[in-house]
Simulated scan of single mutants.
Amino acid sequence: MLCMKAWVYGKVQGVGYRMFCRRQARDLGIQGYAINLDDGRVEVMMVGSEPQLAAMLEALHEGPRFSQVLGVDVERVDPGNPPPEGFMLG
């Protein structure tokens, strides 16, 4: 089980980006969260297997229809104990 945080920037707030993340995470079986940050980015924490996280990162770069993702910064992190259940929106 791996844990990563991603910070997505571009036009990613007000376009359904967090709901997109939740749908993708549910489809992939990933736990974590997506929250809007005050600086306009979306922070996404993901817990899953390496193939699950690779697929989620690919989806984060695409985003939903009305988004415009300019970049995604990624970092491996400790998921905490216990890791989050399901995929939460903040």
Rank of each mutant, 00 (worst) to 15 (best):
M1D: 13
L2Q: 11
L2A: 06
L2V: 02
L2M: 10
C3W: 03
C3N: 09
M4A: 11
K5Y: 05
K5M: 12
A6M: 12
A6Q: 04
W7P: 03
V8I: 14
G10W: 15
G10F: 15
G10H: 14
K11C: 04
K11N: 04
V12E: 04
V12S: 06
V12C: 12
G14Y: 06
V15N: 10
V15Y: 12
G16I: 12
G16T: 11
Y17E: 02
Y17D: 01
R18M: 00
R18Y: 00
R18G: 00
R22A: 03
R23K: 13
R23M: 09
Q24T: 05
A25G: 01
R26L: 03
R26I: 11
R26P: 00
D27C: 03
D27H: 07
D27Q: 11
L28Y: 07
L28P: 06
L28C: 08
G29C: 08
G29H: 03
G29Y: 07
G29M: 05
G29V: 07
I30Y: 13
I30V: 15
I30T: 05
Q31M: 06
G32A: 02
Y33W: 05
A34L: 05
A34G: 04
N36Q: 13
N36Y: 12
L37T: 01
L37G: 03
D38R: 14
D38Q: 15
G40A: 12
G40T: 14
G40R: 08
V42L: 05
V42I: 07
E43M: 13
E43G: 05
M45Q: 06
M46N: 00
M46V: 00
G48I: 08
G48H: 06
E50P: 04
E50G: 06
E50L: 13
Q52F: 04
Q52S: 02
L53V: 01
A54K: 15
M56I: 05
L57E: 00
L57M: 13
L57C: 05
E58L: 14
A59I: 09
A59R: 02
L60Q: 01
L60G: 01
L60W: 03
H61W: 15
H61R: 15
H61M: 15
H61T: 14
H61E: 15
H61Y: 14
E62S: 12
E62K: 15
G63L: 04
G63R: 00
G63D: 13
F66E: 15
F66M: 08
F66R: 01
S67M: 10
S67W: 06
V69I: 13
V69F: 04
V72I: 10
V72S: 09
D73W: 13
V74C: 11
V74W: 04
R76V: 06
R76W: 07
R76F: 06
R76T: 11
V77F: 09
V77W: 08
V77I: 12
D78V: 13
D78R: 01
P79M: 03
P79G: 03
P79N: 02
G80Y: 10
N81L: 10
N81A: 12
P82E: 08
P83K: 05
P83F: 06
P83M: 07
P84M: 11
P84T: 08
E85H: 14
G86L: 10
G86I: 09
G86V: 09
L89D: 01
L89A: 06
